[in-house]
Structure formats: structure tokens, C-alpha cells
Simulated scan of single mutants.
Amino acid sequence: MDLTLWWDGWDPIIRIGVIGTLGYIWLVLLLRTTGPRNMAKMTPFDFVLTVTLGSAFGRVLTAREVTVSEAVMAFTLLIALQWLLAYLRRSSRGFTTLVDPGPTLLFHDGQPVEKAMRRHRFTESDLHSAARENGLGSLEDVAVVILQADGTFAVIPASAMGDGSAVRPYLGS
């Protein structure tokens, strides 16, 4: 039986300790310097960054052929690309429209917006859950449900609607 499956000496253990510590410190510094944007509610792009960083960090820890400088470059590149994407989203309305899903009206005037519900694969049960999570007894107490870009529901109670002007920008969704 090959015992290297269980123990291959101290070198790999020390390498993981050193690389893991340096990589973790570098990631924390990068995320700290790029600000809380990366830590806010996750958009699809934030999710991709999180998964990619986790995957890269896992590879750095376990692949003997990955050097510290390669790990630092990989982490820096991923964070820089996220920062560039955030910059483009902030500075270009056209780019923002291209990459951001934007809010979607799911419920209005006592009825689900069927086209939007199908497109986002929601059921009426999901709307009922959103109403309950917002302290409302049923959809009869809800004026509007909007799917936000981060995947959360914005639920506006019927009692807060007034003239309905808050919903007009979403009626085309």
C-alpha cells in the first residue's frame, strides 16, 4: 500500500501553510482596498467573482506547481476585472443596461405579471412568500412586488401606494 496517500512529508504541509497564509492576507488586502462594494448584496457579477476567487484560492492551496507570484497575479487580476466592471457600470449607462438585469415588476394591481413571472421562473407561491416575509398577510395587502437585480423582492404594501406613481417606471417590465 502506498502511504503517500496519507503522508507525503512536511514540505507540502509547510507549503500549504505559507501559501494559504500569504494568499489569504493578499485577498483580504485586495478586498479591503477595493471597498465594501464586493461585500454588499451580491449581483450575478459579485457571485461569479466570489466563486472564481474561491476556486483560484483552492487551486493555489493544493497545486504544487502554482507559485506565490502566480497566485498574487490571479487574485489581483480577478479583483481588477471586478473593479473595472464596476467602473464601467457606474460610468456608462449603455454598459449598465447591457450587463445589469435591472428591476422587474412581478405583481401589480392585484395580479401577477405573467410574462415576467415565466421569464424569471417564479410562481404565485413565491409572491405569497415574499408578502409574508415582509409582514403582510396575503397578496391582497400587497400593491407591488419588484424583483431586484440582486435577486431579492421589494414588496410595497397597498397601504403605502398612494397614487401609484412609484410603480410607473416598472410597468414596461
Rank of each mutant, 00 (worst) to 15 (best):
G137Q: 05
G17H: 02
S129V: 01
I79S: 05
R15T: 10
R37P: 03
G23S: 12
R118V: 12
L105T: 15
S125G: 12
T50S: 15
I79G: 03
D150C: 03
A166T: 09
D8Q: 15
R168P: 04
I25Y: 06
T50G: 13
V145T: 08
D126M: 09
A149E: 14
L49W: 02
S125L: 11
V72G: 05
V68I: 14
G54N: 05
L31V: 06
M39I: 11
G110N: 11
D8G: 15
A40S: 14
M39S: 07
I14T: 10
A131K: 10
R59A: 15
L105M: 15
T67K: 09
F45Q: 08
F57S: 09
G151D: 01
L127I: 10
G137A: 13
K41R: 13
S91K: 07
S91T: 14
Q148I: 01
Y87K: 11
R90I: 01
E140L: 09
D2P: 13
L53F: 02
L84V: 15
E140M: 07
V48Q: 02
G58Y: 04
I79D: 04
Q82I: 01
V72Q: 02
G110K: 09
E70F: 00
R119L: 06
R121N: 13
W6T: 02
T21P: 10
M39W: 03
R168T: 13
T62E: 05
P36G: 02
T152K: 11
R59M: 11
A160M: 09
Y24R: 03
T62W: 07
T97L: 13
A149K: 10
K41E: 11
F57N: 04
L3I: 14
L30S: 04
R93T: 05
V142H: 02
A80M: 11
P169H: 00
G151A: 04
P157K: 00
W6R: 03
G110I: 04
T43H: 08
M1K: 02
R121M: 10
T21I: 05
R168Y: 02
T123G: 11
F153L: 06
G54Y: 00
A71L: 07
L127D: 13
D8Y: 02
G172I: 04
V60Q: 06
V99S: 05
S138Q: 09
A143R: 14
S138W: 12
V48S: 08
G17V: 02
Q82M: 02
D8W: 03
A74S: 15
G54S: 05
L53P: 06
D163C: 13
L49H: 03
L147V: 09
S55T: 14
V113A: 09
T34V: 10
V155Q: 05
A116N: 15
L22R: 04
S69M: 14
V28S: 03
V145N: 08
P169K: 01
Q82G: 03
A143C: 08
V68P: 08
K115Q: 11
G102T: 01
P169I: 01
R64M: 12
L81I: 14
V60E: 10
T43F: 06
V28N: 02
